Amino acid sequence: MVSALCAVLFGLVTWQVAAGGPLRDADERLGRTAFGQGPARLTEFLADLGNVTVALPVLAVAVGYAAWRGHRARAAAVALAMAAVPLLVVPFKLWIDRTGPLTAESGFYPSGHTATATVAYCGVALLLGPRTGRVRAMPVAVVLGAATGIGLVLRGYHWPLDVLGSWLLCGLLWAPSVAALRWADSRDGAALSSRSTRRSCARTPTG
């Protein structure tokens, strides 16, 4: 249901951006109003959360930790979700070829930094959730993804619809990601149970 709604909204937003519709005109007016708002250091910091040099190492540590703890299938599922981001984002960037807010360069829709931050930090929450409490971890991850997009707009690195389109594209990953994580949980659970049984048998006296 979530993925279907995101698909419809992403199609609408993408059509408006590509065709130069009224939604794109309103988006650019909003963007010009938002540029430069807020404390520069804070908004720059928020925008930087989407850099691959920041988000990917954080995710890599979480993936490595989860694999070390025996949740290898779950770690692989999250890593694959991250790997899918450029496969989804880059073709749309090339097709839409949207010019950036403060530059003549193009390829700004959807925002790759927003997608990277959203998937990376939500992936960390999913991997660390069993230990930190998913109820606490996931809201923090969502806030970080949202803050990244807001920072990118306020610094003039992206139009608002670039960020919104990226969030919707990440929503399309929701259904396959949940299915992959359920499969990973069952696989990891079976593996951990098998290792526990073997250790138990090894400690049992043979007489």
Rank of each mutant, 00 (worst) to 15 (best):
R24S: 11
A26N: 00
G107N: 04
A115H: 03
R41D: 15
P160Y: 11
L128V: 15
G20T: 05
S186R: 15
L46T: 04
A55F: 09
V54E: 08
F92T: 14
A55H: 09
G21F: 04
G165E: 04
P160H: 10
F92Q: 10
A137V: 03
G123W: 06
A7E: 06
W167H: 12
W95N: 00
V153S: 08
A18P: 00
L23I: 11
P139W: 08
A137M: 09
W159R: 11
P139T: 08
P101K: 04
A7Q: 03
V89T: 13
Y65M: 12
A66F: 05
L46R: 03
Y109M: 11
S196H: 11
T103M: 06
L5S: 13
V13Y: 01
R199G: 01
W167A: 06
L59N: 11
G31E: 03
A18Q: 07
S177W: 13
A202T: 09
S3M: 05
H113K: 07
T103H: 08
L9N: 03
G156A: 10
S3K: 00
G11L: 09
G129E: 04
C6I: 03
V89E: 12
L9H: 02
V61N: 07
D27P: 06
A75N: 01
L144E: 06
G123D: 11
L23S: 02
L154Q: 04
A190E: 07
A137T: 05
P110I: 04
Y121H: 04
Y65D: 09
S194I: 01
L30W: 14
P130G: 06
A184L: 03
T114F: 01
W183Q: 11
S106C: 05
P39K: 05
R195C: 01
L173P: 04
G70Q: 00
S177G: 14
S194G: 00
G149D: 05
T204Y: 08
R29P: 00
E28W: 11
A120C: 13
R32W: 10
S106D: 00
G64M: 07
I96L: 13
S111W: 07
P22V: 08
P91H: 03
H113V: 07
W183S: 11
T132L: 15
G149M: 05
C6A: 15
S166F: 02
L88E: 06
T204R: 14
R134H: 09
Q37C: 10
T99L: 07
G107T: 07
S3C: 04
A190D: 12
T197K: 05
L127S: 07
L168S: 11
A75I: 06
P205S: 10
R136Y: 12
G100D: 00
R74W: 00
G207M: 08
A191V: 08
T206D: 10
A137F: 01
W167M: 02
A62G: 09
W15A: 14
V153Q: 04
R187F: 02
V85Y: 08
G171R: 01
G38T: 07
